[in-house]
Computed example of a mutant assay.
Amino acid sequence: MNKITPFLWFNADAEAAADFYLSIFPSGRKLDEFRVTEAGPGPKGSVLVISIELEGQQVTFLNGGPSNKLSDAFSFSLRCENQQEIDMYWAKLTEGGSETACGWLKDKFGVSWQVVPKNMSKLVSNPGGMKAMMTMKKLDIAALEKAASQS
């Protein structure tokens, strides 16, 4: 287990979120879960806490109720090798969610993701690349590379 682990608060769908992410990332796996006992809180047998591993990163989810909401202040950054990988993850993660801007999306559980090429820093460190990125929702590597090379 990682010494530092992202810990996300869900209302009541932590297990569904974990199952969704495990279906997207083939190397993902469930690490641990804690189900509610007769002591509570919540319905006996329901998941209270579930830990999964995605691409080597441990993530823990809590069914903590409606008092805290996920926000764009926290996001996962997903570095992709090529356009095909960006397209694949974008399609799966936006299913039931929404596209935002500059390679960001929000999935159906309200978790924000940045789906970016592995050389994103290099592409946007150039003014042309940055300007091009600012006009995109899903990132287009070829268009970013072209814009970065022309300025």
Rank of each mutant, 00 (worst) to 15 (best):
F61K: 09
F61T: 03
N63Y: 10
N63F: 11
G64D: 06
G65N: 12
G65T: 11
G65W: 04
G65I: 03
S67I: 02
K69I: 08
L70Y: 04
L70I: 13
S71N: 06
D72G: 06
A73L: 02
A73K: 00
F74L: 14
F74D: 00
S75M: 13
F76P: 05
L78M: 06
L78V: 15
E81C: 05
E81Y: 05
E81I: 07
N82C: 12
Q84V: 04
Q84G: 15
E85R: 03
E85T: 10
I86N: 10
I86F: 10
I86E: 13
M88W: 04
M88E: 13
W90I: 06
A91S: 15
A91L: 12
L93Q: 12
T94I: 15
T94A: 11
T94P: 01
T94Q: 09
E95R: 08
G96F: 13
E99L: 02
E99M: 02
T100E: 11
T100D: 08
T100M: 09
T100F: 00
C102H: 09
G103V: 06
W104M: 07
K106W: 00
K108C: 11
G110R: 02
V111T: 15
S112V: 12
W113F: 13
Q114K: 03
Q114I: 04
V115F: 01
V116K: 14
K118Y: 08
K118V: 14
N119A: 00
M120T: 10
S121Y: 03
K122S: 13
L123S: 07
N126Y: 01
N126Q: 14
P127F: 08
P127S: 02
P127A: 04
P127T: 12
P127D: 08
G128W: 09
G128E: 05
G129A: 04
M130F: 14
M130N: 02
K131R: 08
K131N: 10
K131V: 01
T135P: 01
T135G: 03
M136S: 01
M136P: 01
K137E: 15
K137P: 05
K137M: 07
K138G: 05
L139A: 07
I141V: 14
